[in-house]
Computed example of a mutant assay.
Amino acid sequence: MTDQAVAGRRLAKQDNRLSDEMFITSLVAGAAVALFLLASILVPNFFQFQNVVNLVTNNWAVISLGVGVTFLLVSGNFDLSVGGIVALSGVLAVWFAQATDGANALSSGWGMPTWLAMVCALIGAMSIGAVNAAFVVALRVPSIIVTLGTMMLARGIAQVVTQGSQRNTNLPADFGTLGNMTMFGTSIKLPVVLMATLIFVAVFVERKTVFGRLTYLIGANPVASRLSGVDNARHVVKLYLFSAVMAGVVGILLASEFKSGFSNRGTLMEFDALVISLLGGVAIAGGFGSVIGMFFGAIILATVTSAATGLVLSPDWQFTLKAIAVFIAIMAQTWALARRHAG
Rank of each mutant, 00 (worst) to 15 (best):
L194H: 09
L194T: 04
A196I: 15
T197F: 14
T197Q: 04
T197H: 00
I199K: 03
I199F: 15
I199H: 08
I199M: 12
F200P: 02
V201C: 04
A202M: 08
V203C: 08
F204R: 03
V205M: 12
V205P: 02
R207C: 07
T209E: 00
T209L: 05
F211A: 01
F211W: 12
G212K: 02
G212S: 05
R213T: 01
L214P: 00
T215A: 07
A220T: 00
N221A: 14
N221G: 08
P222W: 10
V223L: 13
A224Y: 15
S225I: 04
L227P: 00
S228E: 09
G229F: 02
V230K: 02
N232G: 11
N232H: 05
R234I: 12
V236H: 03
V237D: 01
K238A: 13
L239Y: 12
Y240W: 11
L241G: 07
F242L: 15
S243R: 03
A244V: 03
V245H: 05
V245R: 08
A247G: 11
V249L: 13
V249S: 11
V250Q: 05
V250K: 04
G251K: 04
L253E: 05
A255V: 03
A255Y: 13
S256T: 06
S256Y: 15
F258C: 02
S260L: 15
G261I: 05
G261A: 07
F262E: 00
S263A: 14
S263F: 15
S263M: 13
N264C: 04
G266V: 13
G266K: 09
G266P: 05
T267Q: 12
T267H: 07
T267V: 06
T267D: 07
T267G: 02
L268I: 09
L268E: 08
M269N: 11
F271S: 01
F271Y: 10
F271W: 10
A273T: 02
L274E: 01
L274Q: 01
I276W: 07
L278D: 01
L279K: 07
G280Q: 10
G280C: 03
G281D: 11
V282L: 01
V282S: 02
A283C: 03
I284R: 07
G286C: 06
G286P: 05
G287S: 04
G289W: 09
I292M: 09
I292Q: 03
I292D: 00
G293Y: 15
F295V: 13
F296K: 05
G297P: 06
I299Y: 11
I300Q: 06
L301D: 00
A302N: 04
V304E: 07
V304C: 10
T305S: 13
A307N: 08
A308S: 14
T309P: 01
T309L: 10
V312N: 14
S314Y: 15
P315Y: 11
P315G: 08
D316M: 09
D316V: 15
W317Q: 05
